[in-house]
Design a protein around this nucleic acid. Structure first.
Lengths: 198, 198, 198, 198
DNA sequence: AGCTAAACGAGACGGTACGTCCTGTCTTAAG
DNA sequence: CTTAAGACAGGACGTACCGTCTCGTTTAGCT
């Protein structure tokens, strides 16, 4: 994504200050204006950077957003389920965390902007999933460890469960449907209970 | 959405030919160019229509796409599950139909464009859901009738199941992940089996 | 050069206010900044006009300058020799006028800018020549009438004389050589005396 | 104009190879692209030289062009009148030479580019004049020797005659007017005959 | 049948942003 | 200490669309 400052023969090396300023400005403007009002020109101005400096390193707005996510400039936190031995409770708690986060003012709008970028660029979708915990290590890992400890049946589709949870969150943001009380428990049971070991 | 030709005093009445030409042009260009390269100017030119004629009747590109969907100019077909009495088979078959449709060349790109419009305009999300069968009558209705016939437990969350199925389809399109053989059965079982009456 | 506001079928008609504002702004900025610092963007801003409005009607900076000259927005006055019957005196007086004009502060810089445009666009050269009096009617006409009245020999090359006078003025501006006292008489005699009837 | 590779204390000395490559590249690009499409960046790339190396030694594009002329990298030849004792024939022959040169394909375009540089930088005008023969030694000298030998009247304005001949050539290039057959004789007689001794 | 007003096609307008090119300066690594 | 290479901040380029606004023309209900 970003070139490492490896020697490339003579010539000046990439300016890290500019890179940080650009990611910062892009993240701030995405939150303020939304993805479709986000402009390279605006980012360049806010970062006190020339437009060509942006185009030199990123091929599109969505690639820039992807790097903002990788860099944790956008969505600094990460969601990961705990492992208390009670998978229904753990996943439900994770879901509750995500719902709570999305209910903060401005957050669902920001995430919707990120989804708009994700439609352009699947890398953004991957990064957004990672930030929300839908990764092999995190959500999927919790399901796998449930299988290992005998809490869940063998053959439980950990990846698909993880992906489905993420899908529901993303769909609700797109459709601008708020989560209701009990949704975290409802969706968790709906998805997970059939995989519980008897 | 579209004004009926109710009398509004003297003066010409809305031109239906123009309306159809606009929806047609918008649908074609969406398929060709994608949502972000779709322009009002391009639609007007292709429909041999003045730009103000478009602005007179639609407030945004996404509202226009929403009407294309309502009008069945975009995505002419509709997906609906059958009711054979075997809900796993019925939902799985519906899922298989959708997967098959999405695998046609150009379709997933077109649907991704519709999703881009949906991020702007939740009405588009609703219409896309309807076209894919995620409606109270269709997918949700199949779940409710399963409850009524005793095939599914009482308290089965029909709406949430329907919505989750739609979410998964939309997520896969956004993330550009292809469905694999067996996914229809896998996701169906994962979601529905816990609601089966014992 | 500029489309007359003739009916061109349907559609809005050219905005004369915008046209005037553009010519005015271009003329002012040419005087202030010089031709190479003259920018379409700057003209658009000063005229409170969109850049495309300029590009719609003029293909280049130099075409715009040409129309400024045609329109008398740039170099409002015109130089023309009198006809007192004494051609040496008349041409010399014309020359003196031009020299005096060029010695006003800023004028030679402005004319040099016009010459820069003329290098791009021969139409500008023609218009500059017209403004300085090197036209069939004016300077050339004075020579022709001298032939007609018998003041000058038959076969006197009126056009070439006129052009040479213009050439000298333009060269001096390019080379940034000031005219000296007596130059008007000197050059006039040098050029004209060999054509005097004996 | 150009520093000789004289030692200036410790450290590397000016690289003559780079200087030649730059002048060569500038001359070639001027002929190919014209003055307004000539860029420092393009020259640097063609000369395999860093941009700062150009900025270190020349203050502007026009200064670079001036040195190309001084260096005979641009316009290698020189025009000078002969002295056969018949000044009308000599000047006319010189004029014919210049006209013939300008009629070669590409030459008038190249010279027009040099004139564009001359508008920025009077040194270029001087150098162009020198190359065309309008120098105290050459054209002006021929007039002065005509005075000395009694061919021309005392008080003949040698400098102004020389300058006027140059002016006409430059004007014709700017205005893109071709010379016609007989122009060399016509202009020569027009200018010179009044100075012939009787 | 004539009037009136809406809707229409066309397209010019003031603007914003695009992605590119170039400017002149600064930084680095090689020699 | 100069050089080739090249990144940088900045500014202008010429283009594409935006959404609004005039134009004349067409259309169709209402007098």
């Amino acid at each position: 994504m970003s070139a490492l400052p490896i020697s490339r023969g003579p010539g000046a090396v990439r300016n890290e200050r500019a890179r940080r300023a650009i990611l910062r400005a892009a993240s701030e403007l995405l939150a303020i204006d939304g993805y479709d009002h986000l402009t390279i020109e605006g980012i360049a101005a806010r970062a006190h950077v020339g437009k060509p400096t942006i185009y030199r390193w990123w091929s599109s707005k969505s690639a820039l957003i992807a790097e903002c996510l990788v860099d944790h400039t956008l969505l600094p936190g990460t969601f990961a389920p705990q492992n208390t031995g009670d998978i229904i409770a753990d996943i439900s708690a994770w879901f509750e965390d995500v719902i709570h986060f999305m209910s903060e003012p401005g957050t669902s709008t920001l995430v919707r902007s990120i989804i708009a970028a994700a439609v352009d660029n699947p890398e953004v979708a991957v990064q957004l999933g990672e930030r929300l915990g839908a990764t092999p290590d995190s959500l999927e890992g919790r399901f796998r460890s449930g299988v290992d400890t005998g809490e869940l049946k063998k053959g439980t589709p950990a990846k698909e469960l993880s992906e489905t949870l993420l899908s529901v969150v993303i769909y609700k943001i797109i459709a601008r449907e708020d989560f209701k009380d009990g949704d975290s428990a409802l969706f968790t049971r709906m998805l997970v209970s059939s995989s519980l070991a008897t």
